[in-house]
Computed example of a mutant assay.
Amino acid sequence: MSTITDTRGQVALRHLSKSYNLNGQTLPVLRSLSLDIRPNEALAIVGPSGCGKTTLLRLLAGLEKADSGQILIDGIPVTGVGTERAVIYQEPRLLPWLTVLQNVAFGLELRGLSRAQAQERAGRYIRLVGLEDFRNAWPRQLSGGMAQRVGIARALTVQPEILLLDEPFGALDAMTKLSMQEELARIWGEEAVTMVLVTHDLEEAILLADRVLVLTNDGTPPSLVTVDLPRPRDRNSADFVAMRRMLMGKFGLH
């Protein structure tokens, strides 16, 4: 867990249920899920397609409403989107007519900061993600990994309590993905932020998370796995490999 302590960013899920209507039939994806996410914790959510991973993230973001149950952040019920949460998607969705610096500062200007104030704070987070030399570059001049770094900087610059990530590296090539996972681990370690990460990649979950929430689509109750490994984590260590094997076993994989 991050060494920075903060009491903000505590999330409580209470008997959360969500279903969809598919061709006249009710398809439940979350069934009375209760969970406490600690301040500054990194939680990964894994499971097969259709198990409710992204649905849960959207509920946390306030982009969808649950059928029943409640989400509380710092004890306050979630009723929609909020400034204490920021979302990072698989595609960074940068504005092509703005430079890196302008993209990162954009949200701050919308919140009322002066351009000078916004760009000063944006510059800090551009340095944090290692893009100081590209602050004046256009999105079209960036690689996929660099563009995603801009997306991370843009999310962090509004200083959220909770960072929600939906398969943030799913569109990257294998080598860039490995590098970005290491970068995200470093960045989270430096920031006082609660992180909830949706991923299909079990290794990514073990590398980044304090705990892993395992969802299924066969009605089996969700389970929580504590990742009790020292940081920074070694993908090749015996304990890491054993943890990966254990998670694979939960999905019938060997």
Score class of each variant (00 low, 15 high):
A205L: 12
G75E: 13
P160S: 07
D201S: 13
G145Y: 09
N236C: 01
L33R: 08
E203D: 15
A44N: 11
T83K: 15
A44H: 03
M246H: 09
L13S: 13
I76Y: 06
N236S: 04
M180G: 07
L27D: 00
M180D: 04
L27V: 03
L184T: 02
T99D: 11
T176V: 08
D210W: 14
H15P: 12
H15S: 15
E91Q: 10
I73S: 11
S143A: 10
E120L: 09
R135M: 14
M180N: 04
I45M: 06
E91C: 07
D173H: 00
P77M: 01
E182W: 10
R93I: 13
P48D: 01
D234T: 03
E191A: 08
F240D: 07
V129T: 13
R233H: 12
G82L: 01
V198A: 04
V129S: 08
G107I: 15
Q25C: 01
A66D: 09
F240Q: 11
L128D: 05
T7G: 00
P39T: 00
H200W: 06
A42H: 12
D6H: 13
F106L: 11
D67L: 01
S32Q: 14
V193F: 09
A12W: 07
V11H: 04
G69E: 09
V150S: 09
P221Y: 13
S2A: 14
K65N: 07
L30S: 06
H200E: 01
R149L: 14
L101D: 06
A174H: 10
A66H: 04
T157M: 04
A174V: 10
